Simulated scan of single mutants.
Amino acid sequence: MSHEKAQRFVELHRQGCFLLPNAWDVGSARILESAGFAAVATTSAGVAFSLGRPDHDFFAEAGSAGRVDRETMMHRVREIVDGVGVPVSADLEEGYGAEPQTVATTISMALAAGAAGGNIEDFTGSRAEPLFDEQLAAERIRAARAAADAAGAPFVLIGRTDALLVGGSLAECVRRANAYLAAGADCAFVPGAADAATIATLVRELDGPLNVVMGLTGSTLTMDELRELGVRRVTVGGSIARTMYRHLLDAARELAGQGSFSYAAQQLSQTDLNDLFSARG
């Protein structure tokens, strides 16, 4: 990732509101780029599903079996970075380990892969303690910031709290997100905030810009409405990937159960895809 490209990604977070769609492989990233988006993000869920693996979730209680490892994820990030001409932000889950130094190493690896930004979440994968202790979580963000700064390249660090997703209060979300911003995050991310009242409260209470994720709950809020609420960045998580897999499953069931082919009526043509993927050499 060039310094100029990474700086462009930083500037997107300065003012206004922009949509950062999530890709899971080079093909999906190229399609999003062709639609005119100024940058793309990765989705760890989409990457995992494309490899036939589960996303980071409570299954971690049983160990890491099945989870996409850090090296594999970084390889996919590098493929996407090399495959598009726009900045790429990496979904780095919880940093692939609890210790701040592990998180710092993950950030360094993301930078080496060409990422212009990345998010670190406080979700542990344990039902007994689903979130990292707040002080440790802030230290993890602080270590991530130090690693990014040491590299000398622009890097947008996102501090994500999953408190709402595990039954926590909005007050806890605000407290955690502000701690992460104070520790060096450039933007706070609170998945699960999808209604106007909750989002407005977060915008008002946070000491920095807010990222929200749409497409997870069927929220009817539009980009214009999110912009009016004061949101800085909107992502869509794994929702595009899940939509693609919905169509794949429907097609498989039609073929296996009915022996018919109506699933193909809305397909993109071979020519259209060839033209799209030939657009960049």
Results as ranks from 00 to 15, higher is better:
Phe18Trp: 11
Phe37Asn: 04
Met109Pro: 05
Pro87Leu: 04
Gly83Gln: 13
Glu61Gly: 04
Ala98Glu: 14
Ala115Asn: 10
Ala98Tyr: 08
Gly16Thr: 05
Glu94Ser: 12
Leu19Val: 15
Gly16Asn: 12
Glu93Pro: 12
Ala113Ser: 13
Ala48Gln: 07
Gln101Arg: 14
Ala90Leu: 04
Ala65Gln: 10
Met73Asn: 10
Val47Leu: 03
Gly66Asn: 10
Glu99Ile: 06
Ala29Lys: 06
Thr72Lys: 02
Ala23Asn: 09
Glu99Pro: 05
Gly63Lys: 08
Cys17Val: 09
Ala110Glu: 05
Asp25Ala: 09
Thr43Ile: 04
Val26Ile: 12
Met109Cys: 03
Met73Ile: 06
Trp24Phe: 12
Leu20Asn: 14
Tyr96Asn: 02
Ala60Ser: 08
Val68Gly: 02
Val84His: 10
Gly97Leu: 06
Asp57Thr: 15
Gly114Tyr: 07
Ala35Val: 13
Asp91Gly: 05
Gly46Phe: 03
Ser64Tyr: 08
Val40Asp: 00
Gly46Val: 00
Thr72Gln: 11
Arg53Asp: 04
Ser50Pro: 08
Phe49Trp: 12
Gly63Gln: 10
Leu20Phe: 11
Leu51Asn: 08
Ser34Pro: 15
Asp69Trp: 11
Met74Trp: 02
Gln15His: 09
Gly52Pro: 13
Gly118Gln: 05
Thr105Phe: 04
Glu94Cys: 09
Glu93Tyr: 01
Ser89Trp: 01
Arg67Ala: 14
Gly46Gln: 06
Cys17Ser: 15
Gly117Thr: 07
Gly63Ser: 13
Val86Met: 03
Gly83Met: 13
Gly95Lys: 01
Pro87Phe: 05
Ala110Val: 06
Met73Tyr: 13
Ile107Ala: 02
Leu111Lys: 08
Val68Ile: 15
Gly66Tyr: 09
Ser34Tyr: 05
Val68Trp: 04
Met73Arg: 13
Ala23Arg: 05
Leu92Asp: 00
Ala115Trp: 02
Ala115Gln: 08
Gly66Met: 08
Asp91His: 09
Arg30Ala: 09
Ala116Trp: 06
Ala41Ile: 00
Val81Tyr: 01
Met74Leu: 15
Glu61Arg: 13
Ala48Val: 13
Ala90Trp: 02
Val103Ala: 03
Glu33Ala: 06
Glu79Arg: 10
Asp55Ala: 12
Thr42Glu: 05
Gly95Cys: 06
Asp82Glu: 15
Gly117Phe: 00
His13Ala: 11
Glu99Ala: 14
Thr106Glu: 02
His56Lys: 01
Gly52Cys: 08
Gly118Thr: 11
Thr72Leu: 05
Pro21Lys: 04
Met109Gly: 07
Glu61Pro: 05
Gln101Asp: 15
Ala110Trp: 03
